[in-house]
Design a binder for these strands. Structure first.
Length: 509
RNA sequence: AGGCCGUUAGCUCAGUCGGUAGAGCACCGGACUUUUAAUCCGGGUGUCGUGGGUUCGAUUCCCACACGGCCUACCA
């Protein structure tokens, strides 16, 4: 009895729907004909986009005259059979083209053992990869079409495509099975093309300025360079816990110490924190360091990268993001951190950083703060909650409080501030830059200060990194450095609502 | 972590005031040699997210859970 049930369950589970069965039986037929259903090398003469750009303008008569032979490969997305003629639409990475099959031209072309190229059409299913060659023609409705003389199966699809008219709408399925999203929703392909274009832009701007692209370790013994909780893993051979990097900063600085004066890395960063429309546990960061540069150097760099990326993706410097129209065209606004805090809260951190005053200011604004919060945390809270959401057009906020910036150089004139800016757009942090701290004595003092904050319960305070201190004690050139969130820039220039829309395979439970 | 919403065929979605469900596309069979969301004729393919409760009977009502979406919170 129990055994019988078990068998029933297995059968139930393994039973294929009619559709899957029919695809498998088509596969079996192809194999019976002695044809390899998985294809091989196929030399296309052009992409579908090439064909359209070269021949859409030709008339039916001109094409008949010219007899243009082409070979084209793609995925079958539509098939319309009319007795002894058939039309198919195939897509490649550049677009779509129609194929036209006629009985007269194909039924005497052998295809494997005992079949011909016309019969073989019956083994096709939507989703299959096919390659076809023939001459270009125009149909009655003036559509550019390949009149197929020969065709091959290049890869069988054993599962059906998402519905052709409504596409794939379920967001979970779109994120989880991105390959189906890309097939069904052509507009999402443009978002990812834009992503690549943004990264190419970043590279070209930096390469033009003589920067060298480098790679540094993703596995760190100390997760530093930012304030964030890391992912922990274990190295078996060494029997030590190690961390996935939370920033690129400290290794790039080591390279400057080593004499590479302009370096950058576009790399994956991992932060073990919350997930929402602006945060994915792994994301892409650009960090660039320029010896003998400073904050102004970095502002010019960031401005150029943002503006150029927007222009290359959109053809103009304006983009739309979450109901705001953003213009990267004009010189970005510059605003003083303390000035903004004073403007929005009435508290002047230039005058005093009294903890009680700051605590009261937070409470007055009904901000939810811990009574034991440090001065830095309180200032940060005021800025993040009150000022930041209001920074819509690109704004460089300059001169940060020293408490928040253990790796930035102190301001030469203003006590308690460092030479740092963050770029905000639509209330989001896009970039963060310093005139880098290259004084090893001060760096040690800053780390020790962070250590006290850590001891006081701030588990994101920067750990003391002796190996890094050793490095800069050998002499680090004065430098400007910047970190930029690539995903967020892509969101802005593509108008994407969620970071998941610009990451191919976002984190899913 | 909280609030709201969702989970039904491969996909997009209906629906059952409690009697195990139906459309389009896809798929199968047939007709058709210029169609293009082809058309016409015929065919419904399902663990109604999972587990429990109430009930003669649950896909439907109740509870819990899972997964997801949106929003809020958290997260420099």
């Amino acid at each position: 009895m129990a055994e019988e049930n078990q068998n029933d369950n297995i059968n139930e589970h393994e039973r294929l729907s009619d559709e899957l069965e029919s695809r498998r039986s088509n596969l079996a037929r192809i194999i019976e004909y002695g044809i390899d259903p998985w294809g091989g090398r196929f030399k296309s003469s052009a992409t579908t986009a090439d064909l359209h750009s070269d021949y859409d303008g030709s008339t039916k008569e001109q094409l008949e005259e010219k007899k243009v032979s082409v070979a084209i490969a793609g995925r079958l997305i539509a098939y319309r059979k009319h007795g002894k003629a058939a039309f198919a639409d195939i897509i490649d990475s550049t677009g779509k083209i129609q194929l036209f099959f006629r009985f007269n031209e194909l039924n005497e072309q052998p295809a494997g053992d005992g079949a011909n190229l016309w019969d073989l059409l019956d083994t096709l299913n939507l989703g299959d990869w096919v390659g076809a060659s023939g001459v270009l023609m125009k149909t009655r409705t003036d559509e550019l079409t390949v009149r197929v003389a020969e065709w091959r199966i290049l890869g069988k699809a054993l599962r059906p495509l998402p519905e052709k008219y409504h596409g794939l709408k379920d967001k979970e399925l779109r994120y989880r099975y991105r390959y189906l999203d890309l097939i069904a929703n052509p507009e999402i392909r443009e978002v990812f093309r834009a992503r690549t274009e943004v990264i190419k832009t970043i590279r070209s701007v930096l390469d033009e300025r003589g920067y060298m692209e480098v790679e540094t370790p993703a596995l760190h013994k100390i997760a530093g360079g930012a304030a964030a909780r890391p992912f922990v893993t274990h190295h078996n051979a060494l029997d030590i816990d190690i961390y996935l990097r939370i920033s690129l900063e400290l290794h790039l600085k080591r390279l400057m110490i080593g004499g590479f004066e302009r370096v950058y890395e576009i790399g994956r960063i991992f932060r073990n924190e919350g997930m929402d429309r602006d945060h994915n546990p792994e994301f892409t960061m650009l960090e660039a360091y320029e010896a003998f540069g400073n904050l102004d150097t970095m502002m010019e760099l960031v401005e150029t990268m943002c503006r150029t990326a927007c222009e290359r993706v959109r053809g103009e410097t304006v983009t739309k993001f979450r109901d705001h129209e953003i213009d990267f065209g004009p010189a970005f606004r510059r605003a003083d951190y303390a000035e903004l805090v004073r403007e929005y809260t009435g508290v002047d951190i230039n005058e005093s950083r009294d903890r009680n005053t700051l605590l009261k200011a937070c409470k007055d604004k009904e901000l939810d703060v811990d009574d034991n919060a440090t001065v830095g945390q309180l200032i940060d809270e005021l800025f993040d909650e009150l000022v930041q959401p209001d920074l819509i057009q690109p704004t460089f906020v300059v001169n940060y409080p020293v408490e928040l910036s253990p790796l930035a150089r102190k301001h030469p004139e203003r006590e308690g501030f460092v030479q740092r800016f963050e770029l905000f757009v639509c209330g989001h942090e896009i970039a963060n830059a310093f005139t880098e701290l290259n004084d090893p004595v001060d760096q040690r003092a800053r780390f020790e200060e962070q250590q006290k904050m850590r001891a006081a319960g701030d588990d994101e305070a920067h750990p003391v990194d002796e190996d890094f201190l050793n490095a800069i004690e050998h002499g680090m050139p004065p430098a400007g450095g910047v970190g930029m969130g690539v995903d967020r820039l892509v969101m802005l220039v593509t108008g994407s609502h969620s970071i998941r829309d610009v990451i191919f395979f976002p984190m899913m439970r």
